[in-house]
Amino acid sequence: MIKVIQPGLQTTVQDHGRIGYYEVGMPPSGAMDKYSYTAANILVGNDENAAALEITYMGPVLEFHQDAVIALTGGEIPPKVNGQPVPMWETLAVKAGDQLSFDFVKQGARVYLAVAGGIDVPLIMDSRSTYTLCGIGGLDGRPLQAGDELKIGYEVKHQVKIGTRIQDELIPTFSKTNEIRVVVGLCSYRLTEESKERFFSIDWTVTPEANRVGYRFKGERLNFVEREQPFGAGSNPSNVVDLGYPIGSIQVPDGVEPIALLNDAVTGGGYATICTIISTDLNKMAQIKTNEKVRFVAVSIEEALQARKEYKDKVAQMKQQLQLS
């Protein structure tokens, strides 16, 4: 069992996500940075869908009440065991009574803590991911609180040697200025040519409204092509007839402050979505903090698929490396 002494700012149980219910309006939730989440599970020999903790901005203080094998990946929120710094991206052993805590965030925004066996919470619609807006999944459908007790599960697939490390070239680095690749559409035709051009040529600043639901950006006003709104669409020029929102889609309500919809977002609605973040760059998006900068770069579907292939190759490389060690 792991006892929560301090919960951190927002620490939730997440797995690969609640996949397959999007059409009934259930967003997937799940780890926002899948790459780091996957690496953490690989490092402790877990099933790849095992539940881990997603830590945001500020780490919790956790006390282990049993011996455990753990791994910490993602952004750099330097971890300590009993006050001594321990490495990230490495298989670690902790003993009953050990306390895990964290320093201030240095880079990135989210850390994943995987425990060999996974975090044992009930499966809700095939997933252990916390969806706080509905209050389901994870531990009682909410972020961790002081005094919570987390059970460790049995989803270990193989033993990984303590001290096993992800190769340096497979460890992502994080920056305060980022390029995020998007595929233009579905409703980009609603923006004026000038606004479309501006969208891709300015640095957007992440506002304090940036969480698992979505990230809101500050930059400049964008304008929509004037038209008589069709039947079924709202009266604002940023409205269209309702559509399903792709995960990672970007909308600009009233032309002010674009919002990227992420893992816990509404699944559809009536705002024009002007582009969609490619799946691999959602991992990067998850590690961007409030007040950091984003430049959006348009890519083709082929380039997005190529990026996905490279991502899969990297994950395969990680697994291969661990089997060799």
Binding site: L9, Y57, M58, F104, V105, P208, K289, T290, N291, E292
Partner: peptide
């Protein structure tokens, strides 16, 4: 006195 987190 430092802020551990970003925000307003």
């Amino acid at each position: 006195v430092l802020s551990p987190i970003p925000g307003v």
